[in-house]
Computed example of a mutant assay.
Amino acid sequence: MIETKSPVDHNEASPGEDGEKPGADIAFPYDRMTVEQFRRRFPRARWNDDRKAWFVPGRTASRRIGRWLAELEAEADAHADAKGRDAFVFDPIDSPYLQLGKTGFRIRTPYSKTVVDELREVPFSRWDGDLRIWHVPFRSYEELRRRWPDIEAAARRNEPEERRRRAEERKGSEQDIRSRLRSAERRRRRYPLLSHDLPPIGRPVAITYGIVVFTEISGELVAAEVVADFYPDVTEDHVWGYWRQPTLEELVRTWPAKRSPGGDIAWWLPTIEELRPARRTARSREAKRRAKTP
């Protein structure tokens, strides 16, 4: 629906027409029931062929039309919720991760980036940080149903027992050893940088680990033969830079780059697509820190 407030004077309107009266125009696709509801609500409204819109007279017309549109939207949401609930009854999702609530579905799974990414794509879904569950209204059931196989598969993969089983299978393998070495290298919070292309100190930049803030460029040359497994493109021109995680305030203040750079580069200014998840992570990290503070 489109609502436009009528000006006090229309140049093309002749004296005595709607253009000289205070009021507001509203136009919407023709539907018999909607028109009947509209006429009952606004009995003084008149159709204007020139503007292809209904004219509602009165100085408060725009406000009254706004309230009516809000009521229609609420009715549409209620209808969509009822339709979604009926669809669930007809074709339910049987899963230990999903519970039926009064206004929708409550979803609780082990943490999985796949689950988070999938649920964020479901319309009107929201995360409850206090209860640590996702809320999805009934109206979004069709989209939730479509994405559920991937959500459940990711949740099962991240069950503690399943993760322990995979860890036991990997223990002692070459993959496990390499994974441990990579983790140990990352905990050092260092990163090889070309000596002639150094990032700004104290400003969030993006690297292969994500968005970080470099705190120091040591000038120490990188021993390529030692770290070749972690940084295969390292040369004798690389030096070590040391980094930390950015704060939420730093990420919010960071102006995003217009586009992601191409080519093989060590660091770059983050785009908005990279900043958004980093800000969410930082917000969650700071909320946990505040919760632990007595």
Rank of each mutant, 00 (worst) to 15 (best):
M1C: 13
K5F: 09
N11M: 10
P15M: 01
K21N: 11
A27M: 10
A27T: 05
P29K: 01
Y30P: 08
Y30C: 05
V35T: 06
V35P: 08
V35K: 11
E36L: 13
Q37D: 15
F38Q: 00
F38W: 00
R39D: 02
R41E: 10
P43V: 05
R46L: 10
W47Q: 07
A53H: 03
P57C: 10
P57K: 12
G58F: 05
R59Y: 09
T60N: 14
A61I: 06
R63N: 14
I65Y: 00
L69T: 07
L69D: 06
A70K: 15
A70Y: 07
D77W: 08
D77L: 12
K83V: 04
K83A: 09
K83H: 05
D86T: 12
A87S: 04
V89M: 11
D91Y: 09
D91L: 08
I93F: 01
P96V: 02
Y97S: 05
Y97R: 04
L100F: 06
G101Q: 04
K102Y: 08
K102L: 14
T103N: 15
I107N: 01
R108I: 14
P110V: 05
P110Y: 01
K113W: 14
K113M: 14
V116L: 11
L119H: 01
W127F: 05
L131T: 15
R132N: 12
H135R: 07
H135V: 09
S140Q: 01
Y141I: 00
E142N: 10
R145I: 01
R147P: 00
R147D: 02
R147S: 04
R147I: 03
P149V: 00
P149S: 01
N158H: 13
E159Y: 01
E162Q: 10
R165F: 09
R165I: 06
A167H: 09
E169N: 11
R170N: 09
G172D: 06
S173A: 07
S173N: 08
R178N: 13
L181Y: 15
R182Y: 12
S183A: 15
E185H: 10
R186D: 08
R188E: 13
Y191I: 02
Y191T: 01
L193V: 03
L193F: 08
R203Y: 15
R203T: 13
P204E: 00
V205S: 03
T215E: 09
T215I: 06
G219I: 04
L221A: 13
V222R: 00
A223T: 07
E225V: 08
V226Y: 06
A228S: 14
A228Y: 07
D233F: 13
E236N: 14
E236L: 11
W240T: 07
P246G: 05
E249R: 15
L251V: 05
A257R: 08
R259W: 08
A266I: 04
I272L: 12
L275Y: 02
L275T: 00
P277K: 03
A282H: 03
R283P: 02
R283L: 14
S284R: 08
A287C: 02
A287T: 06
K288E: 13
K288D: 11
R290D: 09
T293R: 12
